[in-house]
Write a protein that binds this DNA or RNA. Structure first.
Lengths: 348, 348
DNA sequence: AATTAGCACTCGAATAATGAGAGTGCCAAT
DNA sequence: ATTGGCACTCTCATTATTCGAGTGCTAATT
């Protein structure tokens, strides 16, 4: 077990390392105000800490830097995050709340997160396929042009213009809409498409060309919505360029690629979705070789009705956890509450 | 004036440089099939070409590389672009056409462009403030929740949910909508807001809270649309990481920053908007110190009604112009034609 | 008059040699 | 248990050295 002095030294060492980014030597540590021991003593302690795997020396004659294990201990035991200033919290909350629909909320949150933290922000959005259709509307733009509006969970709308082969009357559109609204509302995307297929197979013969196109258009819209924007948003990649630890073009290229491929991050965020609160993944803990020099901080959120997502940041392993953690925490909580504001009424 | 042989050598030199990226020496050039002269002769010619400013030697004992002036001559006189394969053209066209509304079209075009060329793609979107409102619809989501749908130019729709303080009936909504549709359709965003303000000042007293909120919501939606997504899209930044010429973290950081700031690129694209066809900016021609090691290829497009935009790519000055130019050309033409398909009927 | 071979020269990139500085580990003294 | 002292190690920056590629110039050749 670590003695009080050992812990103190480890803590100081890590704090210094996080601040300066350079290996910390025994002399430097010994001169710190709260440390009343000589460099030699510090060296002895450091040798012990190294033996336990909390710190390591990059080479014989550099100071020590914390290992992932050391950082883990630091985050779990030593770190005391002061809460975000009320002012900043409030600013964040209002910017996020005012941004519009669910997509826009996550967009804004993501942008703010990457700007504020100086890290790469990631948002895993709730699975659209589980969203329930709450309204369908057809808007007649011109004789042969119709705008399909699908509303999901009462807080997200998807548009799709469709072109008709024949003129259609407002009346016909009205009837189509009310048919859709009685038959499909409350269903998930998948269910809605199934139902549509089912109902249509009999009716299709009776429908004229315009009607068919409308149905087709609605199906397209459903499909577009389903496959639409990938469920993962990554923003602020360029922030990575500023960190010396990652200042290697090859590595940067690989990291940037991993952001586009999505798989890597997705598997990481999936882990986080289960955990009910904030999580910190340090280096290897991310489960990816590539992210070894990085840390990831995540926090899940949900928009009610079991639609759950995750947001977080990715940055160099040496990041100001003290500052970043509260930001992720607060942002997730804001998004969570904003998205829950209008819990859809469960139908059927 | 350049003699035939001089031109040939310059052309060969540039082609080799574009392919290999290394300075080209007299020996290498002399051994080329179509060049029947000795290295010494080549050296004499090269000395002349250097005197004229077409090529330069990075240092005494390297070969020569083309200057911007040289590349300019190459692009203007020597370059023969073979048209894009019909197959690829067709693929591009269908992917772009099927992507949805105007925003989505430009989005897809931008993505494809960056993927296909391996460069950074940029799209300056037509000024939203000039778009004309073609339809307004209010969709009642629940007693106190309404979705405002604004349709612009018959091909773009903007959604906005609004929250009411008091219940509202479908009937009331209907009346509001028809009021909007008679008073505001055909106006630009700015005009619509003016008109709204005007008309409302008198009426406001007669409206109940719900109505007022709707008007407010519509105003918000107009404003959101106006300020909405910045008019500039930049995609595929990460592509820059692969080029040796730009393999300097500081420079990359600056470039990435310039992509976020938008001003730099905007002023460049503004130049291109005037030109009626494809344009190539080489190095300094971009007008930006920062883009000195880069080239930019642009092509304007318009969606009718004087709504004009520009798309293009930015990459290292040493890029396969032969391959890239046709891609930008074709993509711009596809976007142009897709966006023009539904030319809005000019109103009033 | 144009082309070419020959040769001295320059410069950059790679490799090796050198020295200074930081920090350690360990031993003996406190 | 702690500390001062000291030899030792390793990195980083600086300086030399070498090698090769490619040039520019001159004189010879066609």
């Amino acid at each position: 077990m670590l003695k009080a002095r050992d812990e103190l030294l480890l803590k100081k060492l890590i704090e210094l390392y996080l601040k300066e980014g350079k290996p910390v030597g025994s002399r430097t540590l010994s001169k710190l105000p709260d440390v009343g021991v000589s460099p030699a003593t510090v060296r002895n302690v450091m040798a012990d800490l190294e033996g336990l795997g909390f710190i390591r020396a990059p080479h014989t004659s550099a100071g020590r830097i914390p290992t992932s294990k050391g950082l883990r201990l630091y985050v779990d035991r030593f770190l005391i995050c002061q809460p975000l200033s009320a002012e900043l919290t409030h600013q964040l909350a209002s910017k996020i709340a005012e941004s519009g629909d669910a997509q826009a909320v996550m967009d804004t949150a993501s942008r703010l997160l990457s700007e504020l933290t100086g890290m790469v922000s990631v948002v895993l959005m709730p699975d659209r396929r589980q969203e329930r259709l709450s309204h369908v509307e057809f808007i007649r733009i011109s004789d042969r042009r119709v705008l399909v509006v699908l509303v999901f969970n009462e807080q997200e709308a998807e548009n799709r213009f469709i072109e008709l082969d024949a003129d259609i009357s407002s009346d016909q559109l009205q009837r189509m809409a009310s048919f859709f609204n009685t038959e499909l509302v409350g269903l998930t995307l998948h269910e809605a498409r199934e139902r549509l297929l089912q109902k249509m197979s009999g009716l299709r013969a009776q429908l004229n060309g315009g009607m068919l196109r409308i149905v087709q258009g609605a199906e397209d819209a459903l499909e577009a919505h389903e496959q639409g924007a990938s469920p993962l948003k990554v923003k602020g990649e360029k922030n990575l360029l500023q960190y010396d630890e990652l200042a290697d073009i090859q590595q940067l290229k690989q990291l940037f690629n991993s952001f586009e491929e999505h798989q890597a991050i997705l598997s990481l965020l999936d882990k986080s979705i289960a955990a009910k609160g904030l999580q910190v993944f340090i280096g290897r803990e991310t489960g990816l070789e590539l992210y070894e020099p990085c840390s990831v901080i995540t926090h899940p959120f949900d928009m009610g009705d079991e639609l759950v997502g995750v947001l977080g940041v990715l940055g160099p392993r040496r990041m100001p956890y003290e500052r970043i953690i509260p930001m992720v925490d607060v942002t997730a909580k804001i998004v969570d509450s904003v998205l829950k504001k209008h819990v859809p009424i469960p139908i059927e």
